[in-house]
Nucleic acid binder design. Structure first.
Lengths: 217, 217, 217, 217
DNA sequence: AATGAATGAGATTTCATTCAT
DNA sequence: GATGAATGAAATCTCATTCAT
């Protein structure tokens, strides 16, 4: 995003060639989002990518690998970067969490990425390696990132000395709730779910609950 | 036809007939748990139930209906009952939530029921009616139940006047986290996740966060 | 029909026992009429006969045999009897044909029997023996009967000396037309087909065509 | 895409693709002819067409549609053309009928087309739309064609003023007889049935019967 | 004699994958 | 590099037939 130097120097045909797999992955994301893994047909993906079935097999050895690529590659962009930011973060845990929730709302809830965890949840029985990968590369990274911030906040006396892992997972639980609601129940529901306000309430309650004495605010 | 119909007079195959659907549903639950809906084969279910493929079709018209039956019937037992208890509940919201979490741990996390929401999350694209059913019959029932308790607590001044629906969904978020972890990530993880302690921490933090003034405890 | 003596003396239980197969055959006729052979389900037949699938197998070794029984037994009643009458018939060929058409209308078009030839036509590939049986026992018997009457009429000079077999089959062609129309096209048609008048026109035209000189009438 | 598209530039598989549906329909006709609709297996059709089961589904969505295609497409070639000829026909009704019978003998009795009406008769219960289609597109077209010729002949005084629809269906009855005999009884019969002579006799008798006064010939 | 639960072979249909062009 | 016709294994579902009761 803000690293234009390398990308800009790729010659045209390289970008073309490199674009193909990305186009396929985009299409695959959309189709998996709609149908889940098993019910997604290679033909649908091909159609949406503007190629034919055969072409997909030039870039990916199987449907399963298409999915794995998706799961692997879509993660770094949204998260690994965020982790780096978190590590040098020096502000209050409270501000960090607000920022974290905001980013989640922007980058996940408002894009197709949200369907990945959904599919991993649904197909973990059939793709244990993928569940493992996701846990290690996404969940634990996110947990660690949060844990680091929390640990500093405990050290500072900003929040109570409670089990750090629990705090981190409690912080993530409403995120998971939004994700599941968005991908699974939203479209059949008429009551709307205002994710932003929900997460704001969570911030309020959660930090009041974590504060050492009286309320922090 | 006009023979006595008490239990002990039922002929052998009559007893089987009554037991069959339950046997099949049990087997189906196990297979769906392992494979998800799409990858589950009727033959697997039949085998596990100790019958043949054809037999399943004597009791259920299609694989989809087997699943719907599961989703429908396994819910009432765990939840609808709980709702009634909640309605006459008069104690503190705090105690109620502790009880609610405890029941969830017993009845859901320690049985196969936990796979149902997992499958519904994974297959909601293919079974929108089922997602709707689950939302209406499970999620909203549970939310309403919690909301009632919360409303009373707010009226009593036990907890702050925050949006009731948000509070209810915040209370359920850690439950969802446990569920997803248990069904999706637990078996590939080496770090253990102590659900009971996690939910205890949640109680602590959550109620401190909801308290009107200083800490309630 | 006019042989009450033997039937009347059957003891009650004999008639009961003998009634079962007949009930099944009646039901089978109705179901075959509606679905054809292949699409007819034993369960449907059983249901309509007021018994269960298993019972059918007490009386018939297979679905195929049920059908063969039908084809065999329903024929004698309508035709073999008629043949005897024809042999002693001494009137004009014209009157005989009028009578023959009238009987056909009553006994075939207004009963389910009409579906048998239909099914035999449709399934002759799968049941060659049955097609053979039907040709030998029904078509050729009918042809022979007509041929005998025609031969006498030719000898008498009532009709021209044309190939007897052709005359017989020409006499039967409109019958076949009625049969096929009735069983195949009638229910999807709005234009009505008045079989009686149609056969009257046939009598008129056919006998004028067969007359030796000028018109006979 | 912008390559020349003349026949000889078509690539090999393009030529196959165009030929495929016809190959499959030919095979299907043969198999349906032998087994009827229900007993015909897609595998048999595929085998006979020199492809595999799956290939059929590239061109036809179901077995039923294969059959409908057959019924629809094989009709125009034999009949619709004939109708046009009939409309401009100005000769005697007698000559027309001779011509009609001759064409029927050539185009229907000596090809597989004859099995289509047979199957429609046999399966009309299961495919009412098809029976309707056949009646409307074949039977009524043929009837109308004959009716037009007959009406002119009545106007000219060539034949008597009898109900036109009856005359038309009487003209067709021997055709139906040939058809049924050929497809159903011929192969199990030893007495041969000379269709040409049979239809010649019909011409003789039928027109003598229709003539207004004395014989027309 | 009758039942009806259970069977299992066999049918249609789908779709990931291959490969000649 | 791209195509898309063809494959064939596998899945769901049906139903004639059997047999313990």
């Amino acid at each position: 995003m803000d690293k234009p130097t390398t990308e800009r120097h790729l010659r045209h045909w390289q970008r073309r060639k490199q674009a193909r797999p990305a186009e396929i992955l985009d299409a695959a994301m959309a189709v998996f989002a709609e149908k889940g893994f098993a019910a997604a047909r290679m033909e649908d993906i091909a159609l949406k990518a503007g190629v034919t079935k055969g072409t997909i097999y030039l870039y990916f050895p199987s449907k399963e690998e298409v999915f794995k690529s998706l799961a692997r590659e879509q993660v770094g962009h949204s998260l690994i970067l965020a982790t780096e930011q978190a590590e040098k973060y020096e502000g209050s845990a409270f501000d960090f969490l607000k920022f974290f929730y905001a980013r989640f709302f922007e980058c996940v809830l408002q894009s197709d990425v949200a369907v990945l965890p959904k599919i991993i949840i649904g197909e973990s029985g059939n793709f244990p390696e993928l569940a493992r990968f996701w846990r290690e590369e996404v969940i634990e990274k996110a947990t660690d990132m949060l844990s680091a911030v929390i640990a500093k906040a405990i050290a500072r006396g900003e929040i109570r000395a409670l089990p750090i892992d629990h705090i981190a997972k409690l912080a993530m639980a409403p995120v998971l709730m939004c994700l599941v609601w968005h991908t699974t129940f939203e479209k059949t529901s008429d009551r709307t779910f205002n994710y932003t306000e929900y997460l704001a309430t969570q911030c309020d309650v959660f930090f009041k609950g974590l504060a050492p004495e009286g309320p922090t605010l």
